[in-house]
Design a protein around this nucleic acid. Structure first.
Length: 491
RNA sequence: GCCCCCAUCGUCCAACGGCUAGGACACCACUCUUUCAAGGUGGAGAUAGGGGUUCGAUUCCCCUUGGGGGUACCA
């Protein structure tokens, strides 16, 4: 039998990281098994469901690269079938009409709570004889439909938790069809999963206590049971269930902050799962190959932004330059527009020299953790004018007078080079100057880095000189000297 | 209240019932006499507590504690 799994979010919000991880596990399971991954939008809560949320979920999955084989199907489209299933159960005697009103039930629950006891439905309407029930229904009295919960314990073999069991009597006769004729969640899920022939239901731990209710519905309906697997929840740094206050939660927010889908998927997969050895950096293909639902933990995991950053950095470093250049152009272009300028103005040549851009990206991509950080490293190689980072200036341009002098001497010396083609030569020139000046090489190199990059971080400075080229490098060094002179004058 | 789940460094993961409890992120130090958001080396850092079972328990069982989920005519 081929594997059929589904991801079934409610369109009541965006695709958040918790949902995304459930989707990742389902998708990985399907891909690993050569099965089918279905998307079902559980939109039966009309009050909270919104079409734009459905779109956001679709966009989120697409961005992550979790391609859907079937669907999206919408739960609301199955309402007629849900109703038929409820009525079928009623006809079979596996369910009964309940004439208790919502108000009565709330009052009884309140009272039970006050008395400090449990408050499952007492089954009183289930004891009505058929004639009485029919008469009241015929008289037009509104009713909901409840299933008759079995008296024995309900258990199953969970793919993640192993043997699971709920005590006899711990499940009450719950409502499956409201008095307005609309189905309740547990019925809709079972009806839909059975209809779509799901073989495995992999979902969050929060559904653990729904499972026995659903199992009894499968049995009552005479439908084959899927295998269940309940993946642990993701917690915030305070150990509480991940919520909005823990920060950016929509996966698209991570996209906007410059994370790579491969980095997010890798990170999410590692939350509650490991291949069993020390490997941590995986591309998507590697994840599919290594994934096993048996190795998913029972324990909930805390979302650690630091580790996501590190992992994303690894993915940026591993990504081919061609796959990164579009993002760099976009980011720098957006920044230019924010200043009311144009990219051809702020970064001339960036868009029409793809080979040079690729070379620069390959040079700098080992360090940054996000796309904007990558763009910041690329920027100086194309920027029409340099901007000096406050902290870098404070740290490496501490002696403006001396540094200005050093930089001028360096410019003179480097100007003797016809072309900046050889990294070794460049290095010996810079070191030679430092020796001549009788200062440590770092005393020249660090200020030079700020002059060229405007930042305190860069690849090896000699590679930077070479990649930046003769004209631009000399211009930057001279401009830095002028800037420093101006500072001395105003000081 | 009742039902259910969970418990290894701060965090994410390892450890057929058997080496000194291992790796990663973060942190600290050193290093790359060139920066760090990169690399390398080293360091600190955990089996929640108590009982069992066993020659031997992170591992199996029980209790306690702690955390989480559910307990709707929400999904």
């Amino acid at each position: 039998m081929t594997v059929r799994v589904r991801f079934a979010p409610s369109p009541t919000g965006f695709l958040h990281v918790g949902g995304a991880r459930t989707a990742v596990f389902n998708w990985l399971y399907a891909r690993r098994a050569g099965g089918t991954f279905l998307l079902r939008v559980e939109d039966t809560d009309r009050a909270r469901s919104r079409p734009e949320h459905t779109q956001a979920i679709l966009d989120g999955l697409a961005w992550l690269g979790l391609d859907v084989d079937e669907g999206p199907v919408f739960q609301a489209d199955g309402v007629e079938r849900h109703r038929r299933d409820a009525l079928h159960l009623l006809g079979q005697g596996a369910a009964y009409r309940c004439f208790c009103t919502a108000e009565e039930l709330a009052a009884r629950r309140e009272e039970a709570k006050r008395a400090g006891s449990g408050y499952g439905y007492d089954g009183r309407c289930g004891r009505l004889d058929d004639a009485a029930s029919d008469a009241r229904a015929d008289a037009g009295e509104p009713f909901a439909i409840r299933v008759r919960a079995p008296r024995e314990a309900i258990g199953w073999e969970d793919m993640i938790h192993g043997p699971m069991s709920f005590l006899a009597g711990s499940i009450d006769d719950f409502i499956i069809l409201r008095s307005d004729g609309t189905p309740v969640y547990n019925l809709a899920v079972v009806s839909d999963d059975a209809e779509a022939a799901m073989t495995h239901v992999i979902r969050g731990d929060d559904h653990l206590s729904n499972t026995p209710k659903q199992i009894l519905l499968y049995r009552a309906l005479g439908r084959p049971l899927p295998a269940f697997g309940h993946v642990p929840l993701i917690l915030g740094s305070d150990g509480k269930r991940l919520a909005k206050r823990h920060g950016a939660l929509s996966v698209l927010a991570y996209r906007d902050e410059g994370y790579l889908p491969a980095g997010i998927v890798n990170f999410l997969a590692l939350l509650g799962w490991s291949p069993g050895d020390d490997r941590e950096v995986f591309d998507v293909g590697g994840l599919i190959e290594a994934f096993s639902i048996r190795r998913v933990l029972k324990k909930s995991a805390v979302f650690d932004l630091e580790k996501l950053g590190w992992l994303n950095g690894r993915h940026i470093a591993d990504a081919p330059a061609a796959g990164l250049s579009g993002a760099v152009v976009d980011i720098l272009g957006r920044e230019a527009r924010d200043e009311g300028r144009d990219l051809t103005e702020t970064h001339p040549g960036l868009e029409n020299s793809p080979e040079r851009l690729a070379r620069i990206i390959d040079l700098v991509k080992g360090r940054p953790r996000t796309l904007p950080a990558l763009a910041r490293q690329v920027s100086p190689f194309f920027a029409a004018d340099i901007r000096y980072d406050e902290d870098a200036v404070k740290r490496f341009w501490k002696r403006p007078e001396e540094t200005s002098f050093h930089l001028r001497r360096l410019a003179e010396r480097l100007a003797g080079e016809a072309a900046f083609r050889d990294v070794q030569t460049l290095e010996s020139e810079v070191r030679g100057l430092a020796a001549e000046l009788e200062v440590g090489a770092g005393r020249v190199i660090n200020p030079l880095r700020v002059a060229l990059m405007g930042q305190g971080v860069s690849p090896g400075i000699f590679e930077v000189l070479e990649a930046m080229g003769r004209e631009r490098s000399l211009a930057r060094v001279r401009a830095a000297a002028r800037t420093l002179d101006a500072r001395v004058a105003t000081a």
